[in-house]
Design a protein around this nucleic acid. Structure first.
Lengths: 344, 344
DNA sequence: GCAACTTGCTAATCCGATTTAACAACGGAG
DNA sequence: CTCCGTTGTTAAATCGGATTAGCAAGTTGC
């Protein structure tokens, strides 16, 4: 990229010392004896020439490129991507690292090819990311490499995972309802089980429900029903409409995702029921719509930024990576959709 | 990253030739005479050992890292980011290049620091991107470097720009209305001028209006009025409500962005006017909401993916980059919001 | 039969750093 | 005065490839 860069040799020449001395002076190693005067001369020369080390050349010897590869199935479409990448990027920058961002689009061959491209560039580690929490099988090229699994799990693959703490989020949803006084008339919309159209429910849905049921039961509250459905707005609308049409009068809805909540709002509105006056709603994910709904939705936020950040922080810790599952808290975004139980 | 890689020396040894011969055989250069038998032996050995060249080491000599840096002000929040990056990434992959993605968050110091980090890693070129079209001053570290400006303009800075063709989009909006028979009762909402809260209007707003007015006039149509306002949903709602309250009865609205269109829909709905039966609406940007509004919005799409793709394609073309402004067409997304003029 | 070319291959350098091994110069101990 | 240990510095090797220069062996031309 044009204009010869200043090299260490240039600095050494200007300072009147050998490249070796310049190297030691610049790296600031104390185990090699460099006089203060030499060190000053080198530092001064480097400053004047605007010297910056060539990371590529250095890495040839040191084996460290201060570079991390990021491979995901999808970075576009989803609201997930931006914040995860920003979290990873900021953590990387704090330690003078840079990120190669790639996307395989779910294609195994593309994935292998991308991992090769990353390894050919000697990345120090690879983040293997999924856009929703699920089980994955990383490409064989990653075996034995320094890898962190982001938002996914791979039993048998020797690497740490970083995932949202869905179980605790389920508990927190229950606690939020209990704290507002809800003990009956509670329904869950979206259910434990994933149906094919909602693969993101496989892990998230199950754990949210487990946590929810555990704390409700311990708190002496009752879950009147669990409605299984896909995780889209129309599903929430349809199921809640049906629920009301069947004569049920819920006091609180636990919607397994914000899109379902949005559908629930529509159904409740049509039935003349207000949130949270007649029915409280607590949700999960904190997607964009959560804040713009009226009333704004109380929801347990997927900690995208923190997931990205922690993945990089693990990588940059010294020492080998342990195959542990790190669960990142999903903070409760308290907004206006939970109230006291309606009378009657 | 663990496990010694296979080097070219390994391949040469296995093939029983010198590293030099192996290098020539593998690079497939025809100007160096290598016998077919030697070439075969080398290729065979490389295949068996699973040899892959070390791009980092190679770049030390060749000066090319097959790596491009991407610096933007913001990659999160905005719907812009995902598609731009995907376009850039896919174009890069087609030519065996990888992207360093960085975000400066509008901070000049961070920007300089990031550019340095990129240059230290010997990137072949840098894409300097803005999240909305505007004039920028790239950091001085980029002077004399191979740079493409994405979605921004920098007069005096010797680099090509890639921007949406807003002027032609304005013309196309006019053509779409003319084609449906509209010649009067046409109002523009969002105006030419940017107000402080809507910096993205500075360039986009002006050019869209210029194109619109030019073609409407040439087509014998009349623009009844231009309403200046910020580019948010509430602004569209307020201005269109006011317009109707003042007794005007528009036949077509040209909304300068989809968010304004959404507000206009609300105002029209409240006034009992239907789209497109009573009032046609044409818009710009094609944000997520455009497709989910009822009726779905006919809008001129910001070509994010194509912008990213073209930026990389320019960089990967051989030869010097010319400081030309490349305008990428904004395709008309024909949906349901334009109809024949209402009788009246 | 000998110079002039080809052909096929390799030794040696280079790219820009880091790191190992060794070498002067000096001071103190014996 | 020699031996030895410090101290400060540098020559040389190394990392993994690309590239230049040159060297043998075989062909061709006359």
């Amino acid at each position: 990229m044009s204009e010869r860069r200043v090299t260490m040799a240039d600095v050494a020449r200007k300072a009147g010392v050998s490249p070796t001395t310049a190297s030691f002076a610049l790296s600031g190693r104390t185990d090699m004896r460099i006089s203060d005067t030499s060190r000053q001369k080198v530092l001064e020369a480097a400053r004047e020439l605007g010297y910056r080390p060539n990371v590529t050349a250095r890495s040839l010897r040191t084996k460290s490129t201060q570079t991390i590869g990021f491979v995901s199935d999808q970075i576009t479409t989803t609201p997930f991507a931006g914040d995860v990448i920003r979290g990873a990027m900021e953590a990387a920058r704090e330690r003078d690292n840079l990120l190669f961002i790639t996307e395989a689009g779910g294609d195994r061959d593309a994935e292998s090819s991308l991992v090769h491209a990353l390894l050919d560039r000697q990345v120090d580690a690879v983040i293997y990311a999924s856009m929703f929490t699920r089980y994955v099988t990383p490409p064989k090229e990653l075996f034995g490499r320094r890898v962190v699994l982001l938002n996914c799990l791979a039993p048998g693959f020797d690497a740490p995972s970083v995932v949202p703490d869905e179980l605790e989020a389920g508990r927190d949803a229950a606690r939020a309802l209990l704290a507002a006084g809800h003990t009956e008339g509670i329904w869950a919309i979206g259910g434990h089980q994933a149906v094919p159209a909602t693969p993101e429910g496989i892990i998230a849905g199950n754990e949210r429900m487990r946590g929810l049921e555990e704390v409700l039961r311990a708190g002496g509250a009752r879950l009147d029903g669990v409605i299984e459905c896909d995780w889209d707005t129309r599903d929430g609308y349809r199921e809640v409409s049906a629920l009301l049409a069947a004569g049920h009068r819920p006091r609180a809805l636990v919607c397994l995702t914000d899109r379902v909540s949005m559908g629930a709002y529509q159904a409740l509105g049509e039935a003349g029921l207000s949130v949270p006056g007649d029915v409280s709603v607590v949700s999960f994910d904190d997607q964009d719509i959560a804040a713009v709904l009226r009333p704004a939705l109380t929801t347990l936020k997927l900690p995208h930024y923190q997931l990205g950040r922690l993945a990089v922080e693990l990588i940059l810790r010294t020492g080998p990576l342990e195959a542990v599952v790190h669960r990142v808290p999903m903070p409760l975004q308290e907004r206006g959709s939970i109230g006291e139980p309606a009378e009657g």
